[in-house]
Every structure is written in C-alpha cells, then in structure tokens.
Amino acid sequence: MLNIENLNLSFGDHKVLDDISLEVKKGEVITFIGPSGTGKTSLLRCINLLEKPESGRITLGGLTYDFGSITKKETLNLRRKTAMVFQQYNLFKNKTVLENVMDAQIVVQKKSKKAAHDKSMKELARVGLDGKADAYPHQLSGGQQQRVSIARALAVEPEVILFDEPTSALDPELVGEVLKAIGEVADSGMTIILVTHEMSFAKDISDRVIFMDQGRVAEEGPPEQIFNHSESARTQQFLRKFYTTTH
C-alpha cells in the first residue's frame, strides 16, 4: 500500500537518509527505533514532504510520486493521504479542541460543517475527549493535547498516520493515556508508522520493527526478533545501552 524506493535526503554535506526503501502493507504497524539523529524523524517528515528528499519514489494509494520532480499539486495530494502526529502536538492554539479537529475537514476536504462536526465528535469520543470539545489547547494537559492531535489525524481518514515520537514531550505519568490511544488506533486497522523510544510499547504494538542507524536501515523484522534475537551487533548494542540507562 505504501512503498518507498531509494529515498535520499541530505542537509548540506550531511547525508541524513541513505537510500531508504520500505514497503508497508495496509493495516500494518511499523515502528522505527534507533539512536537520536539517525534520520527516523526525517524519514517520517519526508513521507508527507515536510522535508523534500533529493531523490526517490513513493507510492501511496495507488499513485507513484517521484521526489525529484514532484509538483506542488502532487505534494498536496500526497499530504492529504497522510496525517502526522507531532512530538509537540502542534495544535492550532487559537482554535478550540473541536475546531482543531474540524478545520482540515472543512478547509481541505470541503466537507459541510455538520458532517465535519459529527465526524470530529466521533473521533474525539474515540480518544476520550468529547467532553473537552469547547476547551482551548492551553487548558489541556500535554497528554490530552496529544490525544486531540490524534483525533485530528484520524478525522481526515488518511491512508497512513505518522507518529513522530508522540510521547517524548510528555510527563511520564501522561505517557500511558497517549499510548493507549495509539494502541486503539492500531487495533482499528489503521496503517501506522511510528517513531518512538518507548521500547516495550514498540514491542507490543508493532508488526515490524526497523532499527535505523546513521541514515540506513540496519535491521528489520518482527518485534520478537529485533528485541530478543537480534542478528545485528549494532542493534544489540543500542538495546543494551537503552535498557541499562532507562531500566
């Protein structure tokens, strides 16, 4: 369903993503792990073109886009098939919770107010925040704001939702509620690409885990393999370090 071929991205002389290829099936949950600065977030940002790769191709929803020659129209088209959940939630701070979830449906998808309203309330109920519809983002906790941003992503019915370290900015006691919401999104059959440092969550939720190192895919496989029987010395080293420093 989602197919990335030979994606390359550089910032100046620094090669951030080096010839990445990736195939994602519908309903699959893919998790990227790896040290900071290895291009996990950049890859997500390339998928909806917040970063523009130098070369490579992406196929999504039956259409193939060539990064080297992508037009403005194609960019919008690709973005409208994806949705992103950001580390810092990135809610519109001048809009209520409900308006945050409704806005893209009205502006981008040209839905009627009524249809957008009903859809938004449904998605807010899914993340347990229909009671906060009229609140403004600053009146909510970080965990609640992130759940709103998940509802906002769900409401546009994307082909895939990209989660960029969705719990990294949260206080530890708020992480659980957001992970629970992501788990429910995964259970509903949504295709998910997730970047996270929550290893036990990654192990539970993922169909496939990809370990990235220095802009390349170092190892990929089912969670069981990556976390318990990794074949790559680099993966083992990363996980060992991770568990000794955080557990």
């Binding site: 919008l76 949705a83 950001f86 893209a104």
Partner: peptide, 16 residues
C-alpha cells in the same frame, strides 16, 4: 512554525 507544519501535513495549500 509548528502550527504551520501541522496545517501543511494535513494538506493545506500555501494560501490556506
């Protein structure tokens, strides 16, 4: 910039 990126990621055009 965060909010601009959020809108872009949802497919808002430059004018939107």
């Amino acid at each position: 910039k965060d909010q601009i990126e959020a809108a872009q990621s949802l497919g808002y055009s430059t004018t939107q």
